[in-house]
């Protein structure tokens, strides 16, 4: 039994990462219909920045994170204005995707030139990432608990912003109907940019809390990005809660399939399951299919 709980917990911890990145991706896609391929790299840079402020500029842990988040937000603001904004008016999906791929490549190389390819340890106060508690036979890592708490706090804040603030209302309006939202006097460019920033901050939090787990290294968030993408699609890509649920589900799927499936299929099985789900429910698990085709 403990074995099951242990596996479920490990899956959940991976799932938190997928869920947060999935959320960040869905957020931007839902309001602006943009798929941000640079999300993983941006999240990774946030992690590096937090490390850099703390380890190389000798800032206290919390202040370093704050600085990193400010830089992430400001950087995203600039990136969105310079690269994505000029393309939005074309109304074409593909150039923006290519643009984010270009941004990804560029930022990844900036990061490589700045910090090099060698992995670094992201130190947390009291080295609590090295503390394991034994609860019966169940082993709980202290940092994993922090990851879980951070995830819930982040999700709550995002939930609050979306449901209670003007930005959230604007995001919702745009997700529903772009033209109607414009008629209501909501400025597309304002909503879009703050959605980007919010999404980057969610990504940044993910990059930072997973830095002690994965170590800070070149591209360390890229796989998390791909898994987050899969999670978002599993959730329907148009539902924020779907993206989160998709992430957690994917984490569990991975943990359990790799545990029990024959070794040959273990790596591919979660993807195959997502594939089958997609064929049965083409619009994801958590969004309803549109009523009927309008012609």
């Amino acid at each position: 039994m403990v074995d099951y709980i242990q596996i479920a917990w490990q899956g959940l911890v991976s799932g938190f990462a997928y869920a947060l990145i999935g959320l960040a991706l869905v957020m931007v896609y839902k309001t602006a219909r943009i798929l941000n391929f640079a999300a993983g790299t941006m999240a990774g840079i946030s992690g590096f920045l937090a490390h850099w402020w703390a380890a190389e500029q000798d800032m206290p842990f919390g202040v370093a994170i704050l600085f990193a988040m400010i830089m992430t937000g400001a950087g995203t603001y600039v990136v969105e204005r310079l690269t994505v904004r000029p393309l939005v008016k074309l109304g074409d999906f593909l150039p923006i995707v290519i643009m984010t791929l270009g941004v990804e490549e560029f930022l990844a190389n900036v990061s490589l030139l700045w910090w090099g390819g060698t992995a670094r340890r992201y130190r947390v106060p009291g080295d609590i990432d090295r503390i394991n508690w034994l609860i019966g036979d169940f082993r709980l890592n202290a940092w994993h608990l922090v990851v879980a708490i951070t995830t819930f706090v982040t999700l709550s804040i995002v939930g609050y912003i979306i449901n209670q603030t003007e930005l959230g209302l604007g995001m919702k309006a745009f997700a529903e109907d772009q033209d109607a939202a414009k008629l209501m006097g909501i400025k597309e460019s304002t909503v879009s940019i703050w959605t980007w920033v919010l999404s980057a901050l969610v990504g940044g939090v993910t990059g930072i809390v997973f830095a002690p787990v994965l170590f800070l290294q070149q591209d360390y968030m890229n796989i998390i990005f791909i898994k987050g993408f899969v999670a978002a699609i599993l959730g329907g890509f148009l539902s924020l809660s779907g993206g989160v649920a998709g992430g957690l589900l994917l984490g569990e799927l991975e943990a359990f399939t790799i545990k029990w499936a024959p070794r040959e299929f273990a790596a591919a099985l979660p993807v195959v399951i997502v594939f089958i789900v997609l064929l049965i429910r083409p619009h994801g698990l958590f969004t309803r299919e549109k009523g009927h085709e309008r012609v």
Partner: peptide, 18 residues
């Protein structure tokens, strides 16, 4: 016990549990 890993693994938990 023989386990493999992929270049893009993010965790070795499953292998360790095995």
């Amino acid at each position: 016990d023989e386990q493999t890993w992929e270049r893009d693994s993010t965790t070795y938990g499953p292998q360790i549990l095995s």
